[in-house]
Amino acid sequence: MKVLVHVSLKPGVLDPQGRAIHHSLEGLGFGGVSDVRVGREIALEVADDTSDEALEDMCRRLLANTVIENYRIEKL
């Protein structure tokens, strides 16, 4: 089974990379962009019987740092 883990910074946490990208987009002449946030997508290939609890555990213990990041698990 393929699983995508989407990791994003929590709302309110400053994202310097997103801000720099925003700045560059404006420099390229793209108007109308009000905010840019950078996230990460981690693609896992796991055994079909992998439990939701195990996936949650992977996210909490390693894939995301829950002090600053949220995660979302998407099974394909």
């Binding site: 946490v13 400053l14 310097p16 990379q17 720099a20 740092n65 002090v67 600053i68």
Partner: peptide, 8 residues
């Protein structure tokens, strides 16, 4: 947590 420097 330690994040990317604000000035990149």
């Amino acid at each position: 947590a330690l994040m990317r420097n604000a000035g990149i």
